[in-house]
Design a protein around this nucleic acid. Structure first.
Lengths: 205, 205
DNA sequence: TTTTTGATAGTTTTGTTAAAAAAGTCAGGA
DNA sequence: TCCTGACTTTTTTAACAAAACTATCAAAAA
């Protein structure tokens, strides 16, 4: 029966991939179950055999993206000895992640209606995980005596993450258009690195 | 004829005040010209005697708020000798400004439709003015040798302002609700001061 | 001449309803 | 257990009439 489950998992994977592409290009509400089924040459009913409903499918895609992203972070973030390298890695990874799934996140950012409630929970989970990872980076750095002691690393990281997010939002809202163009992303990335540079210096002795 | 113009100006002021209250409480699209006229016990047609249309009226209110705000900044920002004090004053003033006009800005932040195009121009002007003021603060501080030379103060300030804005947005989007509750504003303010503290240390030698 | 208004024209928003599209179900076949 | 076509239910869209609102203007009032 392991084989059977493997088969199921493979098909589930396929569905997730196809869905990801659709959601990436057209967003949640402009993607229909028929289209996904069509892409996979299967019946719509089969989708409902594997996933309870559309929102659960979307959430599954999102969860996959999130865990992949967090796995990348976790794998390397604990190996860094230098705080700046660790933070830079986080910013770079995040940037890459956003670029790769550019439309996906733009769609669910604001304008989309009818988004399943649970995605905010996932966003929260990712945020917590990032917070925890970066806080640990600070703690070990403090332990090594490289930066001055910090009474509350989580608070520091929280502020930093909000600030980094603000760089993105700021660059967006300065243009009349509500969505960030792809060409802005590089500018945003540069600004983020600048902020990071100053911020980390501010944590030093 | 100076007297006549004075009278006109006074009435214009009254209209602006009443409009401000309405826009503050109900936003642009939920405020009608009839309501404003009713508040002032005048006919709606008279409003059109003083202002060409609704959007110009809104813009006039906004411009008044903006210039008052900038005047407050300008008056004191050039007198500071200490960079941190200058920045802190900016953050405090901005915070106070937002608190006082809480609804006004929440309304035009995103959800509002039909907002006159020109308000984004005003936002841009305010942003530029703040940028210029804070950049000057940095320049004089560099001139005094208190912090290390900066090749591009505008860039630094730009990043800082985006970061500060991110604190606000971040605190908002963490809650399910799309609007920041008033009780969040204090938390936001505290976080901003923390960020400012670290950031300025990062600019020092 | 300047300020004000009631009446009204023109436009946008809202509410309604029927048709179309999409989500979701199910009995039954391989 | 996996899969499908046909079906039911829910949601979205389109069309359009009613209501609300913006904006105008001729004329009264100051």
């Amino acid at each position: 029966m392991a084989a059977v489950n493997d088969q199921q998992d493979i098909k589930r994977e396929k569905i997730l991939e196809a869905s990801h592409q659709r959601f990436l290009h057209y967003g949640y509400s402009k993607t229909t179950m028929n289209e996904i089924a069509g892409d996979l040459s299967m019946s719509k009913a089969l989708l409902y055999y594997y996933f309870p409903d559309k929102s659960q499918l979307y959430i599954a895609v999102m969860r996959k993206l999130a865990t992949d992203y967090l796995k990348t972070l976790e794998n390397r973030l604990n190996t860094f000895t230098n705080l700046k390298e660790a933070f830079t890695f986080q910013v770079n990874t995040h940037h890459e992640f956003i670029v790769n799934n550019y439309n996906f996140f733009d769609f669910f950012r604001l304008n989309e209606q009818n988004l399943p409630e649970t995605i905010w929970q996932i966003v929260g989970e990712v945020h917590s995980a990032e917070l925890s990872l970066l806080s640990n980076a600070i703690k070990t750095e403090v332990g090594r005596g490289a930066i001055k002691p910090v009474e509350n690393p989580e608070e520091i990281v929280d502020v930093l993450m909000d600030a980094l997010h603000g760089i993105r939002v700021g660059a967006i809202s300065q243009k009349k258009t509500n969505f960030p163009r792809k060409e802005h992303l590089e500018e945003i990335h540069t600004k983020k690195l600048l902020l990071l540079d100053i911020f980390i210096k501010g944590l030093m002795y």
